[in-house]
Design a protein around this nucleic acid. Structure first.
Lengths: 249, 249
DNA sequence: CGCGGGCTTGACTCACTTCAAGTTGTGTGG
DNA sequence: CCACACAACTTGAAGTGAGTCAAGCCCGCG
């Protein structure tokens, strides 16, 4: 049941803190019952009861909301190792829709078990808190992009954000990655139209920042892109200094 | 030292969960050393070491980031009862600047004490987690506003958001409130210019949605505003069902 | 082979910005 | 009590970045 590569969650969290065996075991238990979803399927919809959190084992997903007249905003992209639903933990019902943009496998675990983590594994609780906090900072970065950046800057920001995120679990990345989003979806992430996304990507390519083939993107001049949109990599340093000591019990 | 109205933090948190006396005491301790700041002063700047969280006792503040060329985005408005710095807990340094927009008094408490909460008061830890989660959902709502709403819808959204937030600690609000932000600042919240904020507020007034005198705003037709921007009040229901049981030790 | 979804491209439009000139209100010093 | 300064707000005119509409292209797939 426990595969040779450790569970996705354990390997993600271990990046940041030392976990003792007991904690590892507890976390591994979260990833028991893997579930599979086809490309384009909806995991849940706004308003659904959310009794589970999910760890992403493979695939890409996004959270989105629709407006009555059909406008849509994508409010989060999710990748392997991510924990879905941390934000929704404050509410009984989902606040966004969640859709796959590739085939996906998830490991659900019941929200109700969170109490055990808080009472018995304060280190993990602190870590989850920290990860939720970082997600919030990333949202703030996105807010800045949406409020004050031009289309070109926003696209640059998205590409760098994806690159730095994919690098966590895939350190070797040369600057090339597969982008399984349509340009309409990219538009819905960045508050632009599909048409203008196409034009902007075209310009970034002409100007030598990136190159494309199919839905693969290669970042040719990362430094210039970073300068372009004043990008800060939030995945680099994480403060765990205040965490409760290991194995305090 | 303990005033007849219980500490701001205790009264805010008590809205949502039953706290036992021990927890109340612990929370009250956070609010020991009140500090005062004048209107327009900066509490801390991006990059500063953040060794403290702060509870707002009185006044308004906002978090913001500047871009190299002077563009500015305000990324959060804070009011009495709010806990500042939950998002920054993931990082050793502040990720945004924090400025007062009225005279303000804050109660700092050291980030390092958070470990005690996680090890000894799991209920409070869970509550803090939940409050951070809700803040994240509010950011997502703002993101939707910035990405997909017109100026008029965004202004409506901001006014309703403020109203519903001020109602938490001030239940009697009739729909009128003091708005201590300049129109430039409102623009920096919503990703608009001061000029267009002026025009949009003027239109909302002409159309009978609101009225203004000085920097007081009265919401005349709340339902119409809610319809206008598809507003959801996130302060109403909070899910505490998964919390660890009270006084488990 | 033909269908359909996604991408590109161009012409036109429009919501919001920019620039600039008033107006209002308010605190301050003479 | 007035005059002045200054910052916020208002208003209008002109400019522009991104949206809208529409046509054509590419390519995978039944």
């Amino acid at each position: 049941m426990s595969p040779s590569p450790p569970s996705c969650l354990v390997s993600k969290l271990s990046h940041y803190v030392d976990l003792d065996d007991e904690d590892r075991e507890r976390l591994a238990k979260f990833e028991e019952s893997e579930e599979h979803f086809a490309d384009q399927s909806e995991i849940y919809l706004e308003g659904d009861l959310t009794e589970h959190l999910h760890v992403v084992k493979s695939g890409w997903l996004y959270g989105y909301t629709d407006m009555p007249d059909g406008r849509r905003q994508i409010v989060g992209l999710h990748h392997p190792g991510d924990i879905l639903g941390l934000a929704d933990i404050a509410f009984p019902h989902a606040t966004v829709n969640l859709r796959c943009c590739t085939d996906v496998s998830l490991c659900p675990f019941p929200k109700s078990k969170m109490d055990v983590i808080f009472t018995e594994a304060p280190r993990i609780a602190a870590l989850l808190f920290t990860m939720a906090a970082r997600e919030q900072v990333l949202l703030i970065d996105t807010l800045k992009a949406m409020g004050r950046m031009s289309a070109r800057e926003r696209v640059a920001y998205l590409l760098l954000d994806l690159l730095s995120k994919l690098r966590i679990t895939n350190g070797d990345m040369s600057g090339m990655f597969h982008l399984p989003l349509t340009q309409s979806e990219i538009g819905d992430v960045l508050g632009l139209t599909n048409v203008y996304v196409s034009k902007t990507l075209g310009l970034l390519e002409v100007d030598g920042f990136i190159s494309r083939q199919g839905n693969k993107v290669r970042i040719l001049d990362e430094k210039a892109l970073i300068r372009l949109c004043d990008f800060v990599d939030r995945y680099a340093d994480m403060d765990t200094s205040w965490f409760p000591a290991k194995a305090s019990r």
